[in-house]
């Protein structure tokens, strides 16, 4: 990765769910942490999200879903990202994700799953470590599915 430019993050809300409190808080916290953040707004289709990720040339895609539709929407987004040559982008999912779905999301390439109660600082640390920007701080980031 080109370390001379800011890390670019797309925060997206797929599906019909309009609960955007978490997406906005995370977007702002990542911006305050020095990332370049693009927020799609609500009710985005998987196609629109993959296309935005490509056009904005992002390093990270954060998907916020609280409606329970993640098992229908996330696999589709992962496939569309791969089709656009963006298979190596770091994908995170946040929202209400039952424990049993976490391994399924990991299996299709989602690297981090953050549930309710996650501290924004943990998400920042996670992204930095996954992108190899610095050592993983205290190494005590949110475990998937339960926050920290």
């Amino acid at each position: 990765m080109n370390t001379s430019r800011k890390i670019r993050v797309l925060i997206a809300k797929p599906g019909l769910d309009g609960h955007d409190r978490g997406a906005k808080v995370v977007a702002r916290a990542l911006r305050d942490a020095g990332f370049e953040v693009i927020y799609t707004g609500i009710r985005q289709t998987p196609e629109a999200i993959a296309e935005a990720a490509l056009q904005e040339d992002v390093d990270v895609v954060g998907l916020s879903i609280l409606s329970g539709a993640h098992m229908a929407l996330v696999p589709k987004i992962m496939r569309l990202l791969r089709e656009r040559g963006m298979g190596d982008v770091l994908v995170l999912v946040g929202g209400i994700i039952p424990d049993e779905d976490v391994p399924k999301l990991r299996a299709i390439g989602v690297r981090g799953v953050f549930g309710p109660g996650t501290l924004t600082s943990d998400i920042v640390a996670f992204i930095r470590r996954e992108l190899g920007l610095e050592d993983g701080l205290d190494g005590d980031h949110a475990e998937e599915g339960e926050g920290s």
């Binding site: 599906g15 329970g68 539709a69 993640h70 229908a72």
Partner: peptide, 8 residues
Amino acid sequence: AEGEFGKC
């Protein structure tokens, strides 16, 4: 409505 049936 894909994936959203009966969820909430």
